[in-house]
Write a protein that binds this DNA or RNA. Structure first.
Length: 945
RNA sequence: ACUCGGGUGGUGGAACUGGUAGACACGCAGGACUUAAAAUCCUGUUCGCUGUAAGGCGAGUGUGGGUUCAACUCCCAUCCCGAGUACCA
């Protein structure tokens, strides 16, 4: 009986599905455990081998936890709103819901083949009205909230109204527009519209004017990705910044809590670092510098007010409103020229190219308030208008970028840190004693910061200021395929829909092109937009961005069918946080920050009982593609094997190709990796590829073979380096595929895909099978009693697999299984008592073969089902592994020279005696006494001579 | 430029708290079985020198230093590769 994986896998997948084996209940006496994958966007390209990497890891962990007696929530769904489906609709006229549906069923088919243990009854799709109804509902709750900085949480707008009516806003500075200041009496006198405008400045989701990428020629707003070098990616039309009404989430109000929360969750240090940097909290001061012959002061933000005497110039963002006013007559042309230059550069260019220093002097001077020095004011692209005040004070002796700027433009540098400054490079230290610094002289810089701020405040020209670099999150898109806003605009006031009116379904549109004035496609449906019963009332026509639906999906899984709430509090209290969340790092500052914010809002409003969604995050590495290339001599049909480029030609080659040398220019062309075996190209397949585009190809070979070029790149269709999991699953089976993906290396590590090792894993499973059934002899397993040696092998494996699974070291776990099976095969051990526990250990990794063999053994336990009562996971018995002696490596001066078996309870003296009698050691000692003998119990012995 | 990862045999990787570097696999080479192939099994496989052999000696985890009885692991410097980024004052 041989290992027929296709039959076995189909059979068990069918049974699991039929019996809904992986359905999980919200009501269980077992402890809960929540294992979550980042749900995929169902793209038209289908699944490639990179996708299942994380899914397999999470599936192994889920199955493991189930066997350990946990009630495991392990769901899957689709993040099914998004731009690609809409662009496809624009090209083909197919409704996005149709293509989305189709893509989902492709994905599902591919996922099913791999044998995942998802509870598909809990599937969610963000584009289903049943789901986005609640996305809209949550949006309305956010809209109806403001952030109370005193209680430090989100509260209802009603509570804000009460405060305004009793005391105005004196205790609650307006986060949107700080200019708003009013008493209770004044509040009561405002018109309804004025009141609504003020409330909007407090709301956690709010509407305001913001800049978008506007393409006049296309009549539409473009995403950053669609803009290349200042023109539209499609068509190359001019793109400019345009102010439009947008929705935002006031995530800045949560900045501190988002930072604080990081302390309580298990994210990698790198991930926490990324989020911290994004939030970018800094402590410093805002201060005003008078400008010579000008009434308005220049306000700068600095984290280092201690360096005030080292300021040699000012840099203002080119967009700063003062620039045009302060520029002197003789600098005007220069400044104009520079502004034109800056405008021509996209933000990306401004940020990426730092080697060349650019800037322009305005002709104006600021006055140092302490020593009256005149400080030249420059503009430069490295200062951004959006951060701080859009102006900085430059201290070249302490800041490397300021130093470079001063050098480049020959601005004299003042040294305020004595010998800490060499004149060769800036020194950003805070540990230096200040020189040439007036009232700060002699102070340690870090102590001077506070002193300087106090002085500024006393003089009324500066204040202590905490800055965040994070900005509020744009929340609207001028698109069709997203959640419509449950908002009606009437006389400039945004009116929320009643919860009973949800879902506000996406209406069908005739075309997916933009509406008038840059509005989204929805603006074209006047029946839908304009409400008959209310004159001048108009629906919001933009839709929500991709991250809306993904900011809370982990909650819907807990209670996916609920028609009365997004998730019953009982359900969210039962499941609580996601215990382990698996996905890539690309969401570091998007999804992972937004979902944390939404969770905090829902917590503040009392809808859920926890304020961090993910207890632990595991970042899977990216699977890169390994691309293959052929090299074509330019303007010919002659292809050179990679190692023949520039080599000498044989006479035969010369006559058959008509070439005289191989050193002419070659073009590198991607070829489909599936027609390359390792690096050797299959010439016949190549000639047939792309409908015979290369049918007439001639080859210059190396020893009869065509060797391709190799490069590691992102896996992508256009690079012909994608590998479809289906092909591998069909050929080797899901169990082999699962184990091979894990065997490739650590899950966290990025690595190029290579299918060539998969046979080794397949061989392992067949070898396992032969412990039970021989191809010729049939059944070979038996009920004999195991020996101590066999038990030792088993229990060593139990220990290793459990440890490795717990720390997500799946690659080493697979290798331990191999070692175990190799050893059992060598011992000719076919005993059920050994093999049955081994199958349970293996079942999270290779569920189908384990289930089949268990059932063939007549086992009472199904690895897929586990046990309703508790853990069926094999228990490690340490007593079986106890040894009385160990073969110690004995080294001389750290270099191993021999191995000696020594009893484990030997003392230092015992060991020294044994060692010194050893022949090899004596040879090295040459009759001398050792200086020292180091004996580390259970590790090694080192003799120092 | 900054931040975060990472450099170990022909290849993917292992070595978890400093304690036998190269587990496990791929590939390769040789052999057994077979008419042949597949499958399976066995042997070898870091490099160099040496030995008929068992073995021995030396080098070795990007590079150069350092700490230590002992370094892939810790420290300093440096080079290279990958990913991310909003030049954040």
């Amino acid at each position: 009986m041989e290992y027929r994986f296709n039959e076995i896998e189909q059979k068990w997948q069918g049974k699991w599905k039929e019996n809904k084996v992986y359905r999980v209940s919200n009501d269980s006496s077992k402890p809960k455990y929540y294992v979550l994958d980042m749900f995929p966007y169902p793209s038209g390209a289908g699944l490639h081998v990179g996708h299942p990497m994380g899914y397999i890891a999470s599936d192994i962990y889920s199955r493991y936890k189930r066997l350990k007696g946990f009630n495991v929530l392990h769901p899957m769904g689709y993040d099914s709103f998004g731009l690609p489906a809409e662009q496809y609709a624009l090209e083909t006229g197919q409704h996005p819901s149709v293509t989305t549906e189709k893509n989902i069923s492709t994905f599902r088919g591919q996922l099913d083949k791999i044998g995942f243990s998802y509870d598909w009854d809990r599937e969610v799709r963000t584009s289903e009205p049943d789901y986005y109804r609640w996305t809209q509902w949550i949006f309305l709750q956010i809209f109806d909230s403001w952030y109370n900085r005193i209680s430090n949480k989100a509260e209802r707008i009603a509570s804000l109204l009460k405060i305004f009516e009793s005391e105005g806003n004196k205790h609650h500075v307006c986060p949107g527009d700080k200019a708003y200041q009013f008493s209770a009496e004044q509040w009561k006198l405002f018109t309804d519209k004025e009141k609504q405008e003020i409330l909007m400045e407090y709301r956690l989701s709010f509407s305001a004017y913001g800049e978008v990428n506007w393409c006049e020629a296309l009549g539409t707003v473009l995403a950053n990705d669609e803009v290349v070098n200042g023109v539209s990616e499609r068509g190359g039309h001019l793109v400019e910044k345009k102010k439009m009404r947008q929705w935002y989430l006031r995530i800045t109000e949560y900045a501190d809590r988002l930072l604080e929360g990081l302390e309580r969750i298990e994210f990698s240090d790198a991930m926490k670092e990324m989020q911290k940097n994004w939030i970018g909290k800094s402590q410093g001061a805002e201060m005003d510098f008078a400008i010579k012959n000008f009434s308005t002061p220049l306000r700068v933000y600095t984290t280092r007010p201690d360096t005030i005497y080292g300021v040699d110039f000012m840099v203002v963002a080119p967009e700063h409103e003062l620039v045009s006013q302060i520029t002197s007559a003789n600098q005007k042309d220069e400044i104009e020229k520079y502004l034109t230059y800056v405008k021509s550069r996209s933000e990306r260019e401004r940020l990426a190219e730092v080697k060349q220093i650019t800037g322009c002097f305005t002709g104006a001077y600021a006055i140092n308030p302490f020593d009256g020095r005149e400080i030249p004011i420059w503009i430069a692209e490295y200062v951004l208008a959006g951060y701080g005040t859009g102006a900085i004070m430059a201290v070249p002796c302490g800041d490397q970028r300021d130093f470079g700027f001063a050098r480049h433009f020959n601005i004299p540098i003042t040294n305020i840190i004595g010998e800490h400054f060499t004149g060769e490079a800036a020194n950003p230290t805070k540990e230096a004693i200040l020189h040439h610094s007036g009232f700060l002289n002699g102070l340690m810089m870090k102590d001077a910061i506070g002193v300087a701020i106090n002085k500024l405040e006393e003089m009324g020209i500066g204040t202590r200021k905490v800055n965040f670099r994070m900005r509020d999150a744009g929340f609207s898109r001028q698109r069709y395929w997203g959640e419509p806003f449950p908002i009606i605009w009437s006389d400039g006031i945004a009116l929320p829909l009643d919860a009973a009116e949800l879902p506000l379904e996406l209406p069908h549109v005739a075309t997916y092109g933009p509406g008038p004035d840059g509005e989204g496609p929805l603006a074209n449906i006047s029946d839908w937009v304009n409400l008959q019963d209310k004159k001048s009332a108009r629906r919001e026509t933009s839709t929500m961005p991709g991250y809306a639906g993904s900011s809370w999906y982990f909650l819907r899984y807990m209670d996916p069918k609920n028609q009365n709430a997004f998730c019953d509090k009982k359900a969210s209290d039962y499941w609580g946080q996601v215990d382990i969340y698996i996905g890539g790092t690309e969401h570091a500052v998007g999804h992972l920050l937004y979902s944390r914010m939404w969770t905090k809002i829902l917590f503040d409003l009392g809808y859920i009982g926890h304020d961090e969604p993910f207890k632990k995050l595991l970042n899977q590495g990216m699977i890169q593609g390994s691309s293959r290339f052929v090299f074509r001599v330019r303007n010919t049909n002659i292809f050179l094997s990679s190692n023949r480029i520039g080599t000498a030609m044989s006479e035969d080659e010369k006559s058959s190709t008509g070439l005289t040398s191989l050193s002419s220019e070659v073009d590198q062309i991607h070829v489909d990796v599936n027609m390359v075996d390792g690096v050797e190209l299959d010439l016949e397949q190549f000639k047939k590829w792309k409908n015979g585009e290369f049918a007439a190809a001639q080859f210059i070979l190396d020893q009869g073979k065509y060797i391709c070029g190799v490069e590691t790149e992102k896996m992508s269709k256009s690079k012909y380096n994608t590998v479809n999991p289906d092909v591998l699953v069909d050929k080797f089976g899901a169990d082999t595929f699962r184990m091979y993906e894990m065997f490739l290396g650590p899950v966290e590590q990025s690595k190029p895909w290579d299918s060539k090792g998969i046979e080794g894993v397949h061989r392992f499973l067949r070898k396992l099978w032969r412990l039970f059934y021989d191809d010729l002899k049939g059944k070979v397993w038996n009920d004999e009693k195991p020996t101590d040696a066999e038990l030792k092998v088993l229990h060593r494996t139990i220990k290793k697999i459990e440890e490795d699974t717990e720390r997500f070291s799946f690659n080493t776990a697979v290798s331990s299984f191999m070692i175990c099976v190799n050893e059992l095969a060598e011992m000719k051990c076919h005993k059920k008592e050994i093999l049955e526990p081994l199958l349970l250990l293996l079942s999270p990794y290779a569920p189908h073969i384990s289930e089949e063999l268990c059932s063939l053994l007549g086992s009472t336990i199904s690895p897929a089902l586990g046990d309703s009562k508790g853990s069926v996971y094999p228990v490690f018995n340490p007593a079986l592994l106890v040894e009385s002696s160990k073969e110690y490596p004995v080294s001389i001066n750290g270099k191993v020279r021999t191995n000696i078996v020594i009893s484990l309870d030997a003392s230092q003296a015992d060991v020294e005696q044994i060692i010194l009698q050893n022949e090899v050691i004596q040879k090295w000692l040459e009759g001398n006494a050792p200086k020292k003998i180091i004996y580390v119990k259970n590790k090694m012995v080192n003799v120092v001579i």
